[in-house]
């Protein structure tokens, strides 16, 4: 399981945040501009929720709302599971796996630092997964 800290995954990120009263259209423009699947919604500097592509798909037009007039606060995911920056990345992966979601905000003292996504598992950590498996096989051979 990837042990590196969340902090090392998000250190190069500039967190993409939005105020809770912007429209879905404006939030979508931010997501498109930054090529991301979710934004951090903040209220007074603290994390209020996240707005994800899944929210955009399931809670706006699908429920008869107009993206140009709907505020993100109405359709965002409230109280998302969050993770502290010093936790291992494996914990975030487990949260995603158990909860069947793809984004976990990294939060310290209520303030958002960045976002960890399932795609992060496909970088160096994919290699680590494979190395872990290889190592275990190798240990098995030594012990055998």
């Amino acid at each position: 399981m990837p042990q590196r800290a969340i902090r090392s995954i998000i250190e190069d990120q500039k967190p993409v945040t939005a105020a809770a009263d912007i429209t879905v259209t404006a939030a979508a423009q931010l997501m498109k501009l930054h090529r991301i699947g979710a934004i951090l919604v903040v209220d007074g500097g603290r994390l209020a929720g996240i707005f994800t592509e899944r929210d955009a798909l399931f809670r706006v037009v699908a429920e008869g709302r107009d993206p140009a007039t709907t505020r993100v606060a109405e359709v965002m995911t409230d109280n998302p599971r969050t993770i502290g920056p010093d936790r291992p990345f494996g914990h975030a992966l487990h949260l995603m796996y158990e909860g069947e979601f793809r984004h976990v905000p990294a939060v310290e003292n209520g303030r958002p630092l960045g976002m960890v996504s399932a795609r992060d598992a496909l970088g160096p950590d994919l290699q680590q997964f494979i190395t872990d498996l290889d190592t275990r096989t190798h240990i098995g051979e030594i012990l055998g």
């Binding site: 399981m1 992966l93 487990h94 995603m96 796996y97 069947e100 793809r102 399932a118 795609r119 598992a121 496909l122 994919l126 997964f129 872990d132 498996l133 275990r136 240990i139 098995g140 012990l143």
Partner: peptide
């Protein structure tokens, strides 16, 4: 989907760890 594949990776890792623990 990417979710399916990440899930498979996690399952594999969990299974491998379990098998190794049982083996030891």
């Amino acid at each position: 989907s990417i979710g399916d594949l990440v899930k498979i990776r996690l399952d594999e890792t969990a299974q491998e760890a379990k098998a190794l623990r049982a083996y030891i």
